[in-house]
Structure formats: C-alpha cells, structure tokens
C-alpha cells in the first residue's frame, strides 16, 4: 500500500531533521511505542502496543534510519511483528523549508501481514493514514516543546 502526504512542523529545517532522528522524540511520536532502545548506528529496537478501539496487539519491532541527506531527506524504516500480524513501513522523508517551519513530505510503502491484513483490509488505508497523522501531530507537539526548552534539558 502506497502512502504519501505532507505535514508542516513549526521548526526550522535543521531542527526538524534533528527531531525526526532523535530516538526520544521518535519514541514519543510513534503511536503505541512503549520503548525504543538503540541497538546500533541509526537502528533501534522498539516495543509497541497498538490499541485501536477493541483491537490491541503487542509488536516487537525495529526502527532504522538510512540514506541520510542532512538536513533535507532520509529514509525511515519501521518494522514490527506480533501475534496479530506484522507491518513494515518504508518511507522517504523530504524536509523542505516552508513558511512557518518545515514541510515534511513523505512517500513510501506500507506492508502488512497476518490476521490484521486478512481481516482488516477494509480499514488498512484509513488506519495507516491515522497513524501517520498521529505521528506528525505528536512530533509537532514535541517540536513546540523543544522550541521552548533546550534539547539538553530534555535528555
């Protein structure tokens, strides 16, 4: 499933780039993320609990950042699997300076498997978009916080 879109984050390009690669920020922004633990250069292990209405599932996953082009683009690869299935998102993010902040344009592919793919087909598209929206909303909120406090104080 292809996903694409854009979101305005109210910080400058470089700051947006840093935020998007900050594990603490990512951990807070990823919907359902419980823990995000560094396992290598630009690679993290993640535990997620996805809850949507009655549906819930624990996922064990990986977050990887690749093809870094500071501060204009990078690839974000998120993988998770659990009892109810697995998902894999691979997206290219472009950061473009815009009025009022940075426009983050994303384009990528989401794959799902297992029970969630087989019985949730009707809702996959809607859900994927909602998750992405929540991610950027959280990220924006983090950006707003970071704008008023120094990054060092947060970590």
């Amino acid at each position: 499933m292809k996903v694409s879109g854009s979101y305005l984050i109210t910080v400058a390009q470089q700051r947006a780039y840093e935020l998007l690669q900050d594990p603490v920020v990512l951990g807070k922004a990823m919907p359902g993320c419980d823990t995000l633990e560094r396992v290598g250069e630009h690679e993290y292990r993640m535990k997620m609990k996805m809850v949507m209405a009655s549906i819930s599932g624990l996922f064990d996953g990986k977050v990887r950042i690749a093809d870094l082009q500071p501060h204009s683009s990078f690839r974000l690869i998120v993988e998770g699997s659990g009892k109810i299935g697995f998902m894999k998102g691979d997206g290219l993010l472009h950061l473009i300076p815009a009025e009022g902040g940075t426009n983050v344009q994303y384009e990528g592919n989401v794959e799902v498997g297992g029970t969630i793919a087989a019985v949730g087909q009707r809702l996959l598209d809607t859900t994927a978009r909602m998750m992405i929206k929540r991610f950027f909303e959280k990220l924006s909120a983090e950006a707003a916080v970071s704008a008023t406090s120094s990054p060092a104080a947060k970590i």
Binding site: S54, I55, S56, G57, K83, I84, T115, I116, V119, G120
Partner: peptide, 21 residues
C-alpha cells in the same frame, strides 16, 4: 476492562484474537 453491549463487533474481534480483553 472492555464494555460489551450486543457483542456484534467485540466478539468476532475476540475470536480472531485481535482483541483480548
């Protein structure tokens, strides 16, 4: 806990183990 009324949405999800209250 999960509140159930008629169960027409919840029970199928539980049977598929997509929901496990």
């Amino acid at each position: 806990c999960k509140v159930m009324a008629g169960g027409m949405s919840l029970i199928p999800l539980m049977k598929l183990r997509l929901a496990a209250p």
